[in-house]
């Protein structure tokens, strides 16, 4: 084998990206289309509606505001987990990733409380188009939060054995990309349903 051949990067790095990272970004592109479709549905239905409630009339703005802050803080702890991974600080990584997962539970807890409050006064997806969209879009977002927590939980467990694996940091980065995307979706959902 020549020296040049030995120095050539593996084929998967020719774009400068690992397959995993490329895959996560392509997946996120498809997710953007999914949520964009729902937002378009919201716009079309609202423009054609004879009446539409303003968000603060029907939802609890302080709770939505709190959940927004919870997700923003969880994005910071997620990126800090990546930073600790880079620094090869195992303990720090597990603390930040653990806090990220815990904040996911806080978010879901608050969301469940909000949903339960609506169900108690008999507000269901069938009540109105507003509630159909509210439950569909926040429900789909909640599912994404759960998926992100499962992946982060798996990384938390796997880190015991896989910490030194060269692809482990890529997995943390990929999971982080998904978690930040979930945060971005909420950044648009919050004003759409609570403030407009």
């Amino acid at each position: 084998m020549t020296t040049a051949a030995a120095a050539a990067p593996p084929s998967e790095f020719r774009t400068g990206l690992t397959n995993a990272k490329l895959g996560v970004w392509l997946f996120l592109a498809s997710e953007v289309m999914l949520f964009a479709t729902l937002f378009t549905t919201y716009i079309v239905l609202r423009l054609g509606a004879s009446e539409w409630p303003r968000g603060w009339e029907v939802l609890n703005v302080p709770l939505g505001f709190t959940n927004t802050l919870v997700l923003i803080v969880s994005s910071v702890t997620m990126v800090m987990a990546y930073a600790k991974c880079w620094d090869r600080d195992y303990k720090g990584f597990r603390i930040y990733l653990g806090v990220t997962i815990a904040l996911g539970f806080v978010f879901l807890g608050i969301k469940s409380f909000e949903w339960a409050a609506k169900f108690r006064v008999h507000h269901f997806p069938s009540t109105s188009i507003y509630y159909a969209l509210y439950f569909t879009m926040t429900g789909l977002h909640g599912l994404h939060v759960i998926c992100g927590m499962i992946v982060n939980g798996a990384l938390f467990v796997l880190s015991k054995k896989e910490w030194d694996h060269p692809l482990f940091m890529g997995r943390v980065e990929g999971s982080g990309l998904f978690w930040h995307f979930v945060d971005i979706v909420w950044i648009f959902l919050f004003p759409t349903f609570y403030l407009l």
Binding site: L45, G48, A49, S50, E51, W52, P53, E57, V58, V121, H122, H123, T127, S128, I129, Y130, Y131
Partner: peptide
């Protein structure tokens, strides 16, 4: 601005 459907919430 044509109304394409009715959307009446319980509050409304």
């Amino acid at each position: 601005g044509r109304t394409t459907h009715t959307n009446v919430t319980a509050e409304a």
